[in-house]
Amino acid sequence: MLLDSLRKYYQVFVVSISEMFVWKLNFVLWRVRVVLQLLLLYFLWSTVFLQQEVVFGYERAQILTYIISVAFLRSFVLSSRSVDVAGEIRDGELTNFLLRPLSYIGWWWARDAADKVLNIAFALVELSLLWFLFRPPLILQPNIVLVLAALAASLIALILYFYFSFLLSMAAFWVAEAWGIRFLATMTLEFLAGGFFPLDILSAPVFRALQLTPFPYMLFFPAKIYLGQLGVGEVLTGFGVLISWTVFFVWAVQAVWMRGLRTYGAEGR
């Protein structure tokens, strides 16, 4: 039973990889954008450190390690193709999935897994090249416990982001222009997740407020664990908030999905 079920989603995984190879150029261009963004941040921060040794309480190596580890985290935490869910709901493509004995959310998990595997592979190659070219001073975390904790946090963050993104897309059950919501969300999300700078350089009240939202746990939190800049208490509280948000979004997706299906009109052609 379980094996059959796994085979289903494995096959979706295989098909998704094959499809991505059809869209080779698309994928390569996407990665070029990612690299350009990383280079931009890298040079920006390098320039800032030309004048000073310490900026906002960070040393050069710390910031650069932060930027690069966030770039790596982004490649698998914030990569999800569930953006397309909105379109499939609006155009009635969802019908094709409802007809078959297969979980739609499972389908997207398998598709995302394919996406993430390719993205990680590319990110590793790109980052090694960049390291080779610029030889930035990087911090290698010697404490294996911290590395494992950072890894665990990013895996939970990945689940959190998947359900967050899926929830946004499901707005398409009710409004025709779900992409507007999506646009706003992606713009703010990278910023609030700490994709451009470490969030603790913000003023203390803003930073404290931000820590109650799910966003800092997607990139900032795992990166900070890796850097070894959080105390045991902070790490534990962080995990608590992260897991609570994840449970909430998993629940919300199930609840909204059940309601959405009732209003689903299977329109379009």
Binding site: D4, R7, K8, Y10, Q11, V12, V15, R100, P101, L102
Partner: peptide
């Protein structure tokens, strides 16, 4: 092949 897996 996908349907073969989906329908077991």
């Amino acid at each position: 092949l996908l349907n073969r897996a989906i329908y077991e």
